[in-house]
Design a protein around this nucleic acid. Structure first.
Lengths: 200, 200, 200, 200
DNA sequence: GATGAATGAGCGTTCATTCAT
DNA sequence: TATGAATGAACGCTCATTCAT
């Protein structure tokens, strides 16, 4: 329901292709993890959400682990899109990147909730760890690069430790998902903090 | 672990009191949540871990939810201990507080893992939210107070937003638990960042 | 028992249809209630009796209560068949009805045992009460109608209270199930009593 | 609570004797069977109802079966009291007996509910059957004797079968407990029927 | 006598997965 | 491809009973 908007008008009525089914199931699982956590994820609910039989779900994803893996990949695909290009000075590109992440948090809060669930699970699940690692490394390398460039060009304070700062920025964003209640407040407050931090 | 020193030496071997049993079960549940997440928490395993029958566990905790609640309270009790007194300037007390939190992360990494699981669950569980909120508010108020005092006394940079900075510090610590692999590295790197941040 | 004659001979060995499974489970539950009472009804035994897994039973009856409800409906279906037509004078039809009930008691003693269990349970279970009420009302109305007709036509003694007599007849049949030992004796003895009672 | 009114004032405050405890427990079990059936009888609830520990209950009744047996005996004791003496003609004594039974049904409806539960259980429980049989036989013999005497003395219709009529009367009373809803109506309606039946 | 604590066996129910069609 | 039906292995919880104190 509403998970197949990207289809061509002609195909909207019937016969979703295998890939579409797979995507619809992945998205449903993603939604359910966001809503109920891994703890509350039931493959039956995922199938019901898409409107297919459980056996059909297992036709596409033989195991629950495989479905979860698809959710991980789905999520990684969205995150990766964040660590690309941009123009302007290092500071501008950094601010643009942080703005993009903040926009994600506003537009699809589920993204960071699911990511948090996955990162927590990665501690005890090597497969998830392996699937998540590259995207985290990419983001970290991207941030570090921008920070180092900014320091080198005198945009940021000279004593800024690019490595530590990159990790700190990532930690702040992840940690905000674990904040109670005033998440919106936290968002803007921390926002200002980051700016000031880099500015000097 | 070390909670029964007040007993007579003779009785140390047998007959743990009701409170001790309750605490042992709570700790076992705490450990299992850290090791396997809420997703993998089984009351049978908790009972087995302590060496009692499932029925005995249910004698102390009629429902699994009650056991989880005990874990929450247990955890909150440890966190609360963090937001107390200290001497010296605001900066010294702040640094001491952060050092204490870092020490917790080093000595009992489970603490923040379980806290993360609980904070994630708090989003969909009002009871856990309510149980966790006060301790989070306390920590935040404590940090904000120290930061405001430090700014007022000229210890910290004058443009520091006490509220935002408090939230940012909390977010960083929480977010570190969601960091992959180089957690030790992250710890010291972010450590330095925080110092420099406040110092100027 | 003889409910699958409509299948093709080749398929008779295997693959009972969903309705057949449902009926087989209902009958097994019916038998077990008769043999052990509600007190001794275990869904595991019902499943084992039919030769399926417990999960299969729950596929058809998500809850034990639902299975019991099916037993109630099954039983009501059989009782309802008793309150239909017939030919001849009111007295003949009444006697025919009572003979049919007596035949039931002889051929399937479980019927009244299960009914008694259900009627007793109906006191504290509104759902069972509601499910049983119509069939009881029907039987009562049927008896009252015949009795009133018989009185009006001079077949029965004129001072017969159709309402009270209908209730008395129903009570006698139900009460016989609660008789110890000499049930066969009771059957014929009371039989004669009823005849004489109406005859005069 | 309210179950020890027969005690002497001095003993009312403390130290209920063993027999009193036993009786209180038996009465509590009796009440619970009436309210929830055998199906819903829990020894824990019986103990709680009396205000003692489960272990204490088991001190007096080592097994649940023993407690139930005590309930049977308690009930039999009350029923037996019904089949004694009386004065006047056979018809007067019979009517007096029936009136006494009707009074029981009005004043303590639980009596027949518990009796019904027990009679149903007697079918599959030899111990209960054996405990109940004498009282049923007594009542039957008492009724048969009165009926035979009444027939011999010309008080009742000459073609009355004393044996069958005794069984029918007992069945009617027992069956009334299994009637839905209009139990009060049934009581008076059947009442009139019995009178008329014997009268002629 | 009385109790707090403990337990073995079992109960209704759930869930990921399988399989014949 | 898709599904209805089936299942093994748990899971949270209950209950009559036991036992040390």
């Amino acid at each position: 329901m509403g998970a197949i908007e990207t289809m061509s008008p002609a195909a909207r009525e019937r016969a979703p292709s295998g890939d579409e089914r797979r995507l619809a199931l992945t998205r449903a699982a993603y939604r359910l993890i966001a809503a109920r956590g891994f703890e509350g994820l039931r493959v039956r609910d995922v199938a019901a959400d898409v409107g297919v039989n459980i056996a059909t779900l297992h036709y596409y994803f033989p195991t629950k682990e495989g479905l979860i893996r698809a959710v991980v990949d789905h999520l990684v695909g969205r995150i990766v899109a964040t660590t690309t290009g941009g123009t302007g000075t290092a500071g501008e590109r950094l601010r643009a990147n942080l703005a993009r992440v903040r926009a994600y948090m506003r537009d699809d809060p589920d993204l960071f909730v699911v990511l948090s669930e996955l990162l927590l699970r990665a501690r005890r699940d090597a497969a998830i760890h392996a699937a998540l690692k590259p995207s985290q490394d990419d983001w970290r390398a991207y941030l570090r690069g921008l920070l180092a460039e900014g320091v080198a060009r005198g945009e940021f304070r000279p004593d800024l430790d690019a490595d530590g700062a990159a990790l700190a920025i990532m930690a702040i964003f992840k940690g905000m998902t674990l904040q109670l209640d005033e998440r919106a407040l936290a968002l803007s407050a921390i926002d200002a903090q980051l700016d000031r931090w880099l500015a000097d």
